[in-house]
């Protein structure tokens, strides 16, 4: 028995690549000045952080079965510490572009960056 690819194999490979590329474009968002990181746990929003407005440093400690810490600084955010077994969330590192996510699957925490927010925080714009 040899590993002789058949015509259908190439169809499968092409289908997977095309699906992946199309999906990647679907999730691609334009970079924007306004950036909000939305931190959710099982679809309840724990906190939202205006990344472009973090002056000093922002930290959020979350509890649960696998507790951890999320930190943000000037335009970027990451899981800085987590007690989950796989540590994928910490190794994801800093994320800074709209559309990017960092996830801790065991803890059920998702950090997603959203751009171009219509923001109620802005009281007045002076031109």
């Amino acid at each position: 028995m040899q590993l002789k690819p058949r015509a259908g194999d190439y169809v499968i490979i092409a289908a997977i690549i095309i699906t992946a590329v199309l999906m990647a474009f679907l999730f691609l968002e334009n970079d924007s000045i306004e950036k909000v990181a939305v931190i959710t746990h099982n679809n309840t929003v724990l906190d939202t952080v205006r990344l472009d407005r973090v002056n000093d440093r922002y930290t959020l400690n979350y509890q649960g079965e696998y507790p951890g810490t999320i930190e943000a600084e000037n335009g970027r955010i990451r899981f800085s510490h987590a007690e989950c077994p796989d540590q994928v969330c910490v190794r994801t590192g800093w994320i800074s572009r709209p559309g990017q996510i960092a996830v801790c699957l065991p803890a059920g925490i998702i950090v997603k960056i959203e751009g171009n927010v219509t923001d109620e925080d802005i009281d007045i714009i002076v031109r």
Partner: peptide, 23 residues
């Protein structure tokens, strides 16, 4: 399953990369 458990579809943005590494 992950999006069902976390009740959040944001996790789907990992799928393109998982599909490519799956090759």
């Amino acid at each position: 399953m992950a999006s069902l458990m976390m009740r959040n579809t944001a996790i789907f943005s990992y799928l393109p990369f998982l599909l490519l590494t799956g090759l």
